[in-house]
């Protein structure tokens, strides 16, 4: 690596750690989840946050888009949501005698899909199609979405009433799934003393922009992944396939991408086995069981059964 490139990377790292630091001010004591979310965005993946209401899912999603300086839309999923409410609708314009496409909330950089499992499957699949293809086809026309298009979806755990669980095939579209969990008592105390953080989101200053995120993504993709790590990932994939829900090759590719992004976030130029272990539950959890919480347990036991380098 030559000198200027190295210097550029060092400055990028500084900004990256700024992103994480800023997010930590609004979501107390959740560094690991924040890091995973940022790594997910750098790896160009979509993020699924699952937890009970009120632990800061939306705060994290809003904070992420604000800090990264990306235009964002928020879409509250409800049980009567229609696909047109997600992707937009063609309306007949009488003055031009033509159908005109009215862009839906999906045409943005960051889409906050709040409580995605409250919407019926039809509306869900409309969004998920957009996530995969990064484009929308309607009435024979194709509309491209932003290059940097991220979906940050939140969902309530399945045992809550009035929820439509996402099918496994659609869960696969999310690169990372995280659970936030309740804050520690210290952090909760601070929270109670200083008040709700949601107001302070508006005061957040963007630390980076779309261009920067693109650079980060490209730089992270260049990271060195040694044969040892590839061997380890292969062993993990193979072992997962001994069960019912094996990890797909796409999941394997995603794992490599996410590991690189995470290592990049840590300021390293190579991926270690610890990186793999760190991101693996978030990546594999929802893919192994179709649920986040039980998935994390399954992923962890998988990690414990495979010899790590």
């Amino acid at each position: 690596m030559n000198q200027p490139a190295l210097r550029a990377e060092v400055s990028q790292m500084a900004e990256l750690s700024g992103v994480v630091a800023q997010l930590e001010t609004i979501l107390l004591g959740k560094r690991s989840q924040i890091e995973l979310s940022v790594a997910c965005l750098i790896a160009k993946g979509h993020l699924l946050i699952e937890d009970v209401p009120g632990v800061g899912k939306t705060t994290l999603a809003q904070g992420l888009s604000a800090t990264l300086g990306l235009p964002w839309n928020r879409l509250q999923f409800t049980s009567d949501l229609l696909p047109a409410d997600v992707i937009g609708v063609s309306v007949f314009n009488t003055s031009t005698n033509n159908f005109e496409f009215k862009h839906g909330p999906v045409f943005t950089s960051v889409l906050l899909a709040d409580e995605i499992n409250r919407a019926p499957p039809k509306a869900q699949s409309a969004l998920l199609e957009a996530m995969e293809e990064r484009q929308i086809s309607l009435d024979g026309e194709t509309y491209k979405l932003d290059d940097e298009f991220f979906v940050i979806a939140t969902q309530n755990p399945m045992d809550q009433l009035g929820a439509y669980p996402l099918p496994e095939s659609q869960l696969d579209r999310f690169l990372v799934s995280i659970a936030l969990g309740y804050p520690d008592s210290d952090e909760e105390r601070t929270l109670l003393q200083t008040g709700d953080r949601r107001q302070s989101i508006d005061s957040l200053k963007p630390v980076a922009g779309p261009l920067q995120i693109k650079h980060w993504s490209e730089a992270a993709a260049q990271l060195h992944v040694s044969d040892t790590v590839i061997d380890y990932i292969q062993a993990l994939l193979n072992t997962s396939r001994l069960g019912d829900n094996g990890l797909s090759p796409r999941a394997g590719l995603s794992l490599v991408r996410l590991c690189k992004a995470f290592a990049f976030l840590q300021g390293r130029n190579h991926v270690t086995a610890d990186d793999v272990q760190h991101v693996f539950p978030a990546l594999a959890g929802h893919r192994l069981t179709g649920q986040v919480k039980s998935g994390v347990v399954a992923a962890q036991s998988l990690l414990d059964s495979v010899t790590a380098p």
Binding site: T272, A273, D274, Q277, L303, D304, S305, V306, T307, A308, P309
Partner: peptide, 9 residues
């Protein structure tokens, strides 16, 4: 050494 333990751990 435990099975799932990485070298660093």
């Amino acid at each position: 050494r435990l099975t799932g333990e990485t070298g660093a751990q």
